[in-house]
Design a protein around this nucleic acid. Structure first.
Lengths: 172, 172
DNA sequence: ATCTTTATGGACCTATAATATCCATAATAG
DNA sequence: CTATTATGGATATTATAGGTCCATAAAGAT
């Protein structure tokens, strides 16, 4: 007897685990002494993730100029710039990519055509719109929502977390 | 010869296509005459998606009280409430689920323990914190970011899109 | 120079969610 | 009754996240 519990289970659009790893790793680097390199071994053990997997993420962070890496004995990672200058958004972008959160499935669909067609002639029949120039209004709202989140993430830095940790008393 | 273009390609955390379908379908229902039922055939053709797939999504929307469905000839879907009362967030929640966008990978990791441990005793060594009550500061920022987006999506209704379509001239 | 340590990048594997299809069934109007 | 329409279960397909392994390169230590 097979049990199927709601195969139509849906998860909220979520940040990947990699984003969590990246943020936590960077925070650890920020807390390390300046000039000290933290090895992948230490980072991986700290976060409870495999070295090989974490190293992929660190490598991306390096390519984006967020951390520096040194090979060889006593090598490892360090921040490439001040924690004040690293925003959550910077880190997330590296791991999650740079596309927008909402892409309209098919701008050529009848829906999009009809929608704009009817509204365009309501205001000015002479000015015929040209499909692609006319942004989908659903996307417009979704982009606005994303912008809100992005703005917030751009305002929060790694240093901010360290500061709030230092001043925070862990109340129950 | 095999070509691997950046197998570490990453996509931004994105809304599913289903969310797009749902939003566009609901907008179409909102534009239909009151009392008129729109069939899945019409909706699917409009959006350029299969009937069977869209019907799953519509079914979810029905279960959540956003649309009503009628079987039988001249059946179909209609909004279950005024377009003024349906926010983007309502729709998205149905399709994407209700979990938060960021879950900390492992609250028991050394990272989390150390981080709070050292900060807790800085402020008050006598009050020993108890792991789970102490929220991860990374998650705190991420939740804040999500809240920004959610708030925006709660303020934008389906009716809002119809209104802006009506007043909008499609400028190039 | 050589050895050890450490990061890098390519290839590969696996599990799961998103996307999609098909069909039997139920409900309803005419 | 019959035609129409939505529903829900089962299943298939595809892409991505998540993860492993290994050969190689780079740098410090001996």
């Amino acid at each position: 007897m097979k049990l199927y519990f709601n195969r139509w289970k849906v998860l909220l659009m979520q940040f990947s685990k990699s984003t969590g790893y990246a943020l936590h790793a960077i925070i650890h680097l920020a807390r390390a002494e300046r000039g000290h390199h933290v090895g992948i071994k230490e980072l991986a053990a700290l976060l409870g993730v495999s070295e090989s997997y974490l190293s992929k993420i660190m490598s991306k962070l390096r390519q984006d100029g967020i951390v520096r890496a040194m090979t060889g004995a006593s090598g490892g990672y360090e921040l490439a710039k001040s924690a004040k200058l690293i925003t959550f958004f910077d880190v997330i972008q590296v791991v999650e990519g740079r596309q927008t959160m909402y892409e309209c499935f098919n701008m050529d669909s009848l829906q999009h055509q009809l929608f704009f067609e009817s509204e365009a002639q309501a205001s000015d029949p002479s000015e015929h719109h040209e499909g692609q120039n006319c942004e989908c209004l659903v996307k417009k709202v979704m982009d606005g929502a994303e912008q809100q989140m992005v703005h917030y993430l751009q305002q929060h830095t790694i240093q901010g977390v360290l500061d709030s940790a230092a001043s925070k008393k862990c109340t129950k």
